[in-house]
Nucleic acid binder design. Sequence first.
DNA 1: TATGATATTGCAACTCGGTTGCAAAAGATT
DNA 2: AATCTTTTGCAACCGAGTTGCAATATCATA
Lengths: 153, 153
Amino acid sequence: MVMLRTCLETVIKKFMSDVINDILKRNQLSVTDSRRKILEFFHHADGALAHADIEKLSGESFDRVTIYRTLQTFVEKGIIHTIPTADNSVKYALCKDECEAGHHHDDHIHFLCDDCGTTYCLETHVPPVQLPQGFVTKRTDVVVSGRCGKCSN
Amino acid sequence: MVMLRTCLETVIKKFMSDVINDILKRNQLSVTDSRRKILEFFHHADGALAHADIEKLSGESFDRVTIYRTLQTFVEKGIIHTIPTADNSVKYALCKDECEAGHHHDDHIHFLCDDCGTTYCLETHVPPVQLPQGFVTKRTDVVVSGRCGKCSN
DNA sequence: TATGATATTGCAACTCGGTTGCAAAAGATT
DNA sequence: AATCTTTTGCAACCGAGTTGCAATATCATA
């Protein structure tokens, strides 16, 4: 029984590892420890992550500069996207499937919980917005803040 | 003719000055040069202003610390409100009429022009957003970016 | 699997937006 | 006008983010 579970965990771990590697290779990025680790963080996190969160999670594993550069690279490649939060700090979240590089567009809403600080990417689509004559929309960001499901009990 | 215009300008200036003074007094703020000047900037600007804009407009008139503090005070009093921009910088705009202090709520949409950098407060209201069970909305920010009327010709 | 070209990392130093403490100056109140 | 309170300016500081460069790791090729 114990044997079985250990074995299963190994297989799952192996599988996850392959998924991560695939993402990196598909984006023509060399596979390095920091990139894999940071991608894993995003896959395990249920919300968006700020630079500081990643720094905490990684402990002393790698330099803060590396984190900055890795995040930049991921954004450029369209693996993650930035989220404009209400308090004007920067958060990042995995793009649904594949945004194309330089075209990170995610047509969904972000929810920021004032209590626990978690940022959620909701599946709700952004409602179309009526603009004055001559205005052309390129991108729409909707940030709702309040209290999330977990915190409102 | 020239006399008349000069006279009219004087009257208008006097009137504006009174309006500015009124706003400050109504909010229990002492009337100082910097506060009046900064409020005037907002009244003349057709869009939102960043700290940097005000610094440029004011030249050497007053210290950057004063600008920071003045903006903070105005936000606290509900005279201006912050706008979350797509690039995660901070902009400020006059509140419509009076938001109550500490309750700067403006239920409108912000438009950020990628070309000229101007931020507009549009009169369009924020459409209601459907959230998952248990989520409670406190505030909704909508930031549309693209090209404004002036730049799209 | 060893090797060289290329890409990435870590470090140190720096920039820039914003804040804080305190003394000087201005505004408000009598 | 005198005094009390608030605001300003200065200098120093803080933290987030960036840059240059040498050291190191990855990748492709032999």
